[in-house]
């Protein structure tokens, strides 16, 4: 910039010189304002006016074109090559950055989707497991094929150990859910003889109705084998009837109980 202005200085001196020199030599009768007015009106078709008009026409043309092109295509049209290269570079970088970000976000999305899928799957499995365990623990109702065993006891001869034997026999034959009258039989069920038979502390009276879910073809013979439950009961003057049922509902429930002492050892 500095050498530039030096270069310009002589030219400035020249044009500057012309008016001052003219002012010294030329006689001054009129003020500048009068000269301006005289030049503007009336319009005279002199050579000087024509030449100036042509040059000013060129100036106006250039001015208008420049203004138009600058407002037309934003800054890019008038920009220099190196600026354009820089702008292009910046755009490329920006595109690259945005592309990277897009990839990152897409990865995140897939991750989230698959993890939510996994969570859903795990939840389903947990529910399934909870149902299975609920059937074992007696906290949910169960249904399926099975048998009903009804023991009529007109002589009050049936004792708790006989019912226990029956349960054992049924379990050995693959019974999966058992209910005696209104009491669900599960792993910690106990039988006792205190003023009648009690199952889990609840009094159970004759007739004793067993609802058992399991494979009927296995359960029925297990009870009816010679020397088995049915024969033993009949010896005691009690009658036992076994019926196969296509669909049986074991709907007696037990409350879920949190163990006070036992803790899972697989931590």
């Amino acid at each position: 910039m500095r050498p530039m202005s030096n270069e310009e200085n002589p030219e400035e001196g020249r044009t500057e010189e012309a008016p001052t020199a003219g002012e010294q030599t030329g006689p001054v009768q009129q003020t500048g304002r009068q000269r301006l007015a005289a030049g503007l009106w009336p319009p005279r078709l002199t050579r000087a006016q024509l030449i100036v008009a042509v040059l000013l026409f060129v100036l106006g043309l250039g001015l208008a074109i420049q203004v138009r092109s600058t407002s037309d295509n934003s800054a890019l049209r008038g920009a220099r090559q190196e600026d354009l290269v820089r702008i292009l570079d910046e755009l490329d970088n920006r595109t690259q950055r945005l592309e990277d970000e897009k990839q990152r976000l897409e990865g995140q999305r897939t991750e989230l989707e698959s993890s939510s899928d996994q969570a859903e799957e795990a939840r389903k499995q947990t529910q399934e497991k909870a149902r299975q365990l609920g059937i074992l623990a007696g906290t949910v109702a169960a249904q399926g094929p099975g048998i009903t065993l009804t023991i009529q006891d007109p002589h009050k001869a049936v004792q708790a150990d006989m019912l226990l034997d029956t349960i054992q026999e049924l379990r050995a034959a693959g019974a999966e859910a058992i209910q005696i009258n209104d009491v669900r039989v599960v792993g910690d069920t106990y039988f006792s003889d205190e003023s009648g038979i009690r199952v889990d502390g609840q009094k159970v009276g004759a007739p004793y109705t067993f609802k058992v879910i399991g494979k009927p073809e296995d359960l029925e013979p297990a009870l009816n084998i010679p020397g088995g439950v049915v024969q033993t009961l009949e010896k005691e003057q009690a009658t036992a009837t076994v019926t196969r049922v296509e669909k049986i509902v074991v709907d007696a429930l037990r409350p879920a109980k949190r163990p006070d002492y036992a803790r899972s050892s697989s931590q």
């Binding site: 009336p42 026409f57 100036l59």
Partner: peptide, 8 residues
């Protein structure tokens, strides 16, 4: 005047 016209 002509000059101004030229510019316009």
């Amino acid at each position: 005047m002509i000059a101004v016209l030229g510019l316009v």
